[in-house]
């Protein structure tokens, strides 16, 4: 029996660079809450898919990459598959596609061996995850992103494959010379992480085979850690800009939560990071002394943050994502 894989959440505390198809890709810090770490570990121990829900922008989808990074380090992209689900997605899209047209063309042009069915099979993310999980410590991390976008029967169509960890390709079974071909089986269960924005309910039969975790909005200390790791060289930074930004963001969140502003969708971590990115950029411009008028105007805008006035939030368009929110913000600012 194998020792269960273990996720600590420690490996991605700083921005890392990992190569994907020869191109370097940056992975920003991901600092998970302790209960999320436990949920991931439990899912890996029980070899069950982990269903994640939470406000949009709370870091559901990023978790899969963080887990893959911790398990596989720089080899991450050899053991990581992503399946972004769409409203038109079918369960079979994740398994494989059989290129009928290619085979037809080969048959009519007499080019290539049309009996070699493998040539016409294109594996989907789930199929690839099954095939690449060849050893216990090489289990693929599969992200099925936003499963709720698809048809309501979509999760049910995945039940068998996720439970048995195998699927058949009927087209391959036509090849009489290879009687054993046509069944793709995962030697080891991939680590499956599924995200949902709760736009549609998931079926009971599907949920009972999964573990579920709801990602709560991050607290101030974790947000500070994430921003420090991403935008500052020192781990424990004492930048007044960060203090002000955190204060304003958390107050805004609280206000919206209490429905005082009736702004609708609450602002999330990802919006905070985008917003802080802009604040930091123009705050740095002030230090470098840029004299361009449009930059000067934005630098002055950042200065407003010091007042910590919720009616004078600089770059509020980054935080509010719908017209209703912006209008309510202006309405309150005008009072």
């Amino acid at each position: 029996m194998h020792t269960p894989l273990r996720y600590t959440g420690e490996s991605l505390k700083h921005t890392q660079t990992v190569a994907r198809n020869g191109i370097n890709q940056q992975l920003h810090p991901y600092i998970p809450a302790p209960d999320l770490v436990q949920a991931v570990n439990l899912a890996m121990l029980l070899e069950r898919p982990l269903v994640l829900m939470g406000e949009p922008g709370c870091g559901k989808s990023l978790l899969a990459k963080a887990v893959a990074h911790e398990l596989h380090g720089s080899e991450l992209f050899n053991h990581y598959e992503e399946w972004p689900v769409k409203s038109t997605s079918r369960a079979r899209d994740g398994l494989y596609e059989f290129d009928q047209v290619h085979r037809l063309r080969d048959a009519t042009a007499s080019s290539g061996d049309v009996t070699d069915m493998e040539r016409y099979i294109h594996y989907g993310p789930l199929g690839k995850a099954f095939k690449s999980s060849t050893a216990h410590n090489k289990r693929c991390v599969l992200l099925i992103d936003e499963i709720d976008k698809a048809d309501i029967d979509f999760p049910n169509d995945l039940l068998n494959e996720l439970e048995r960890m195998e699927f058949d390709i009927p087209e391959m079974k036509l090849d009489a010379s290879r009687p054993k071909a046509g069944t793709v089986r995962a030697d080891f269960r991939p680590v499956v992480i599924i995200t949902s924005n709760s736009e549609k309910d998931l079926p009971d039969a599907f949920l009972r085979r999964c573990l579920f975790h709801y990602i709560e909005p991050l607290d101030e200390a974790t947000l500070r850690d994430i921003v420090s790791a991403r935008y500052y060289k020192e781990a424990a930074t004492t930048d007044p800009l960060l203090d002000d930004a955190l204060h304003v963001f958390l107050q805004l969140r609280k206000t919206i939560q209490a429905e005082v502003l009736s702004i609708g969708k609450n602002i999330s971590t990802s919006e905070f990071l985008d917003w802080f990115s802009a604040l930091k950029h123009f705050s740095d411009q002030e230090e470098t002394g840029s004299e361009a008028p449009h930059v000067q105007r934005l630098v002055v805008e950042v200065e407003k943050l010091k007042a910590r006035d919720l009616r004078q939030v600089p770059f509020h368009h980054i935080l509010f994502k719908n017209i209703h929110s912006v209008l309510r913000f202006h309405e309150n600012a005008g009072r």
């Binding site: 436990q38 949920a39 439990l42 949902s196 573990l211 579920f212 709801y214």
Partner: peptide, 22 residues
């Protein structure tokens, strides 16, 4: 497998993850 005996919190977490759904 030995999980859940270290603390009440761990056991509760196990029950929560197994039984509570969206």
């Amino acid at each position: 497998q030995g999980y859940g005996f270290n603390s009440q919190e761990e056991l509760l977490m196990l029950c929560e993850k197994l039984w509570l759904k969206p």
